[in-house]
Design a protein around this nucleic acid. Structure first.
Lengths: 340, 340
DNA sequence: AGCCTATTGGAAAACGTTTGCCCAGCGCAA
DNA sequence: TTGCGCTGGGCAAACGTTTTCCAATAGGCT
């Protein structure tokens, strides 16, 4: 690490002919005031010298850095990048910097990243992304977060199911259920589902909600009509192929995320099936571009940017009891699921 | 900022019955060695006490933090998120944290963010995103970066045109030119372009390359066949509407980015034109999902993740002269531009 | 004039590290 | 035995801030 040599507060003080204490108060001054005359002189000198406060030094003495740490599974995934975008906008408004890391969906790494975050003494740690059931690392991760919170940090989990921290939850179950109702109302009868690994709670919830929604309309979702694969575009493709190969009769497919739906659409086309014509297709999340594809994708809107903002709100508001914010979803019907 | 109270190195040293210096050397030890026996005892004690090094304190004394700062225009844009993903992967491999900010395409903010970055004493600053011609802030930004570099930091710009820093450049001109050739070879004759604001260098380059490519095939791109709007999905939509309203006869449209192409496709459909049938459509970047839309989008592949990795390579390798890395592009023909 | 209070500047102690230096112990060659 | 070099531990200074005191000055009141 090349040492970087910078203008220091002492130099500014010297040049302005005041003490370091006064310079500090003039520039970042809090409770104590300094006379207007000196304030002007000091800030001006600082400006001239190109002084920049050393954030690390401030952090050392203050005990916490003006930073929020964000951990997402995969920043290239539009779901995560939309949420991150909301987080960053809110962070900026609050005058906080964002340090970000991706776990690449490996929860062993996730634990290490949280440790590293902790070293930074951020004001809050936000973890976005679904938790695995029976994740062997879950306990270790929770322990890290608990220790961090114990030490005065704030923890917010987005879409991470029940846990003793502040939560922002997407109404996965309710959204999927409402979607099922809407699709049945449109005349769907034979349903299939392309779902991500069910150990990922998000998938389990969406599948359960969809199943329940169908059940409430007296339709039973058969196990053979459910194909499970990775919770990604490629997973959607793979799952759709499974469904097609199994030869289950289908008129409508629900993919557990828009990204999976995009993969599923391509799989359909490759098999000579037109999504939205022979087989309807619906996704979940309402990510960008769902409106621009043909046919435009029916989906369940989850206000992703809003979710990020809410997470920051939680992170910034004091409060000793763990709170949960549920963000509502709403069904958006588009051309990919025509009325039959 | 709530003070966070943590286990300190002094406590570890005390508990292990050694001096702070020894504890430091045992845990992060550099040149000096400590006896194996003590090393084990100290690290074990640290582990038991849940000690985490205070990164800020280390940064203060070392003069630079194990961090790379990344500034992008908009993290929700798949172009930027793909590049960021590459950067973060490379950063992690190098054992660096990433602090990230979005300028939301406002270059006044951009300057402030760079100042804030500087306060953090990161090892490198990477700025991703096109520069505006005649940006009134350009000088101020460059000054900030120069001062940072002067102080020992590393600066890498991605897609920012000529400038006295390390650069990673996408072959915008060459790529667009090659695309023009390919489209003419497929039988295209009447071309239109939906381009982002030309003050944004990326757009100017792509347009110039495309124009030149056509010229080399003896086709002149008329000014009325070029529509300019924001360099976003919505801009693509708006530009395409302009083209359609102008009534220029077209058989092929080049959109300056895939995102613009998606918007353009929707504009076409709304006007009753089938992209890929009546009018061919091509984009640039090869972002995710270009293969999944119908018709699959012809585009120019820019290896976005690779670009991020290259940027980090530059940031981490020593070198006093500014260097430029050109990443090659390649034309990918898909169904949206059928042979005529 | 005497005293009390409010204001504001400065000296110095912290914050949690790393690292330059000193020094003790030890092995080994002369 | 002496002298020397090497190893490895500890003391204390340094890094750049904030903040707690303390001191000095000014002003208001009796």
């Amino acid at each position: 690490m090349p040492p970087q040599h910078q203008v220091t507060l002492a130099q500014v003080a010297e040049a302005a002919g005041v003490s370091i204490a006064t310079a500090s108060r003039a520039i970042n001054g809090s409770t104590r005031k300094v006379s207007e005359e000196i304030r002007v002189r000091v800030t001006q000198t600082a400006e001239e010298l190109g002084y920049l406060p050393n954030l690390s030094a401030q952090t050392v003495v203050k005990g916490a850095s003006p930073t929020v740490a964000v951990l997402v599974s995969d920043i290239a995934d539009p779901y995560f990048s939309a949420i991150s975008s909301g987080i960053m906008a809110a962070a900026r408004q609050a005058g906080l910097m964002v340090t970000m890391a991706t776990s690449e969906r490996r929860s062993a790494d996730e634990r290490d990243m949280i440790r590293t975050f902790r070293s930074q003494r951020p004001r809050a740690i936000v973890v976005v992304g679904s938790r695995w059931d029976q994740d062997p690392q879950a306990a270790a991760i929770e322990e890290q977060l608990a220790a961090y919170q114990q030490a005065g940090g704030r923890v917010v989990l987005v879409s991470q199911g029940p846990s003793p921290f502040d939560l922002v939850e997407i109404q996965n179950f309710e959204g999927a259920k409402a979607l099922a109702h809407a699709l049945v109302d449109q005349g769907g009868q034979r349903f299939g589902v392309a779902v991500g690994y069910r150990r990922l709670r998000t998938n389990a919830d969406r599948l359960a909600g969809f199943t329940q929604g169908l059940a409430e309309r007296s339709i039973t979702l058969k196990e053979e009509a459910v194909a499970e694969a990775a919770f990604t575009r490629d997973g959607g493709y793979a799952a759709m192929r499974q469904l097609l190969e199994r030869g289950v009769e289908l008129d409508t497919v629900f993919a557990a995320s828009d990204l999976m739906a995009f993969g599923a659409a391509t799989a359909m086309r490759e098999a000579g099936v037109q999504p939205g014509a022979q087989i309807g297709l619906a996704g979940f999340d309402n990510i960008a571009l769902t409106e621009d594809v043909t046919p435009a994708l029916t989906t369940v809107d989850a206000p992703l940017g809003e979710i990020g903002r809410r997470a920051m709100d939680l992170a910034l508001s004091e409060g000793t009891e763990p709170r949960t914010v549920e963000v509502p979803t709403s069904v958006i019907l588009r051309a990919s699921t025509p009325r039959r």
